[in-house]
Design a protein around this nucleic acid. Structure first.
Lengths: 237, 237
DNA sequence: GGGAGTCGGTGCGCTAACAAACATAAAGCG
DNA sequence: CGCTTTATGTTTGTTAGCGCACCGACTCCC
């Protein structure tokens, strides 16, 4: 069953005319957990529009420590630097939740981008929402506890998934947040004790999302609000 | 003495034709220390091209804590969201080092941007370099010590100033880094003991820049390298 | 059904950074 | 000059998160 372009908000938001030009070139791909779409500094030849996968952008330090700087799901695309002009970035794009995406060659994307029409406007606004997310991540890393950050991370992921289930080990979450696995264990333990989530060997179920939002720092809300403002999303297009 | 547009790298990098269209509309302004160019969420009506001022982009949390997410000097402009399409951002733009800038109305900037010529390409590349800086700031906030971050911050500021002097209290630096003033005092004390800087009531002189770079985390180098790649700067244009 | 590997939970010592209070001293100003 | 303000230095707890070690328990797979 091939993923539909309409599942990706950016693709769905394009006018018919652009869709007709672009969609024939979209190639469905499946993204397994842990796959690296781009390595830091690598020239990028494709962009990816997730339909139900989630991809994290990570910056990795010299000594191997990492930190997630943004999360991309069916609300966005991977490969911003292609149209921004750099062709590569110092970040790694890592599949955080397995699923599908639609792949488009750099050439086709740039062709359409260079028409300076709706695609350009849309992608620039999307890029601004990414910037917002990165900025807020920086603040969150500075000022908020692991407990709060875990909540933020769960909410960001949940927004990009169909159900209320995450397939994700604590080890992986720790890598994303750039903290120790034990730190995540402790934080997740608290949430479980509160009945907010249920943890079971790599399967997280969020039982009480409203509660999760109250436990979270403001960072989630800030990003969400700004993203909604920049990219109003009407599923019933 | 009015600041010359050629002092700003972005303006200087524009082809003559664009310069002739744009430069007549540039208005010199002086930016005093502490001035707020944009408040979070505020609609922006101007962009600023610093010639010798330095402006910090800060995100502020609910409880008043703040964190700098990027630094802009004569290498860039303030007001990226204007051409990205959002018209505002959740960040505050605060003058960190007094000086001059050239101001341009949103209308004129967008007019030129919408020609989809060299200005568009240049500004998008600049935006990507900003993204790099933000991403690296997020990592740095997560993984590096105050000592290291102070070095990074000094180097970033130094690159945007003519001499080796900074006018800047520890209190202000602490606000930028999002740490306590005492933390900066301790870190700066170490640097002074090592003879790398000299501190004197709001005046910092960097005595041994090479040493400063060795004490710094990799973050400075990562950002510098990527920025140089994205925006090769030839003063002898 | 019985290992091997994976995942999560726990305890302990350690350090960086925080919080709050206080000391000092230079700069500025009447 | 003497007083106030501002900038920096210092001290004494306290705490969040780290590093490390280890254990138990679930899963997978032969």
């Amino acid at each position: 069953m091939s993923p539909s372009p309409q599942q990706n908000h950016l693709l769905a938001a394009l006018p018919d005319e652009v869709q007709q030009r672009l969609f024939p070139y979209l190639k469905p791909v499946t993204l397994p957990l842990g796959k690296v779409l781009y390595e830091s500094g690598e020239i990028q030849h494709q962009v990816f529009f997730p339909t139900d996968a989630i991809v994290s952008l990570l910056n990795v330090t010299e000594n191997g420590a990492s930190a997630e700087i943004s999360v991309v799901g069916n609300d966005g695309l991977i490969g911003v630097s292609l149209f921004m002009g750099g062709e590569s970035t110092p970040s790694r794009a890592l599949v955080q939740s397995a699923g599908s995406a639609l792949q488009l060659s750099a050439r086709r994307l740039k062709e359409e981008f260079d028409r300076h029409g709706d695609l350009l406007l849309l992608l620039l606004r999307y890029t601004q929402s990414l910037i917002t997310q990165m900025a807020q991540t920086a603040v969150c890393n500075r000022h908020h506890t692991i407990d709060q950050q875990l909540c933020r991370w769960l909410l960001l992921s949940l927004d990009r998934l169909p159900g209320n289930q995450l397939i994700m080990t604590q080890e992986l979450i720790a890598n994303m947040l750039g903290v120790r696995r034990e730190g995540v264990t402790t934080a997740a333990g608290k949430l479980q004790k509160l009945g907010v989530i249920e943890y079971h060997r790599g399967h997280i179920s969020v039982l009480d999302r409203p509660r999760l939002e109250t436990l979270c720092c403001e960072c989630y809300a800030v990003v969400k609000k700004e993203t909604d403002r920049l990219l109003p999303w009407h599923p019933n297009k």
